[in-house]
Amino acid sequence: MRPTPSRLLNILVPVKRAVDYAVKIRVNSSQTGVDLNVKHSMNPFDEIAVEEAVRLREKHKSDIKSIKAFTIGPPKSVETLRTALAMGADSAVHVELPESAPSPEPLSVAKAIRSYIGKQESEGGVDVVILGKQSIDDDLGQTGQMLAGLLGWGQATYASKVELDLGKKEALVTREIDGGHEEVRVKLPMVVTTDLRLNEPRYASLPNIMKAKKKPVEKLKPEDLGVDFTPIIETLKVSEPPKRVGGGKVESVDELVEKLKEHGFTAV
């Protein structure tokens, strides 16, 4: 029996362009943040999110009606969207910020996503949002939870396995928690945040990279979503941790004891 249209799912995957994890970051000279003039790529957890959406499509075929990638960021963020499209997303949305704009904070990002989802109502809505559990640049790890809160949806965070039951309109998600795993059943619509073990993202194939160039990218301005991205957190100063000083070698036990005393350690 062919599924009825109402069962078709729309997946939204918010992604972020971040300093690549392989880059050795350096504090900028004005101590307001890190030097951003370095290699950027898609936040690794978001890559896992895109991969998961594409795998769900591969499993559930045409029951997944659309996979849309969504990003907020400077003009170059469109490259991140192209990667998502090359991996298998169908279309993308770019909420464009000026080049020099400060990085948006989780709350405003969550509000923007909510606002965008609201606008999608007329086009069949969004059933599942899959996003990274955190972004490796600010490590805040709050966006998914805030979004679920704002929407009043169920949430399954730190997912290491996602199984959809389209008939029942729910999902069984395995979460990574301290000391083990936890399985949760979540009603759709829902928010999933990805953990490292969920999957291993694929390479973008050349034909898909070519196709991605022709896929639509919708451009929006912050005003279109009615969200103000001005930070509400003030950064006072960013500095590097103190350099580690190497240890020294001692020749004898006596010398060791001497050294320990010198540094204020005494026998009890």
């Binding site: 290699k39 890559e47 090359a86 390479y203 050349l206 990279i209």
Partner: peptide
């Protein structure tokens, strides 16, 4: 990209397909 387009669009393609690294991790891989 121009090269890859030429290769994929050729009448008698020299390659079946291929993959391109999207980030340094894939580059190393």
């Amino acid at each position: 990209n121009n090269l890859l387009e030429t290769l994929l669009d050729a009448d008698k393609p020299l390659i079946n397909t291929g993959v391109m690294a999207q980030n340094p991790a894939q580059f190393s891989s």
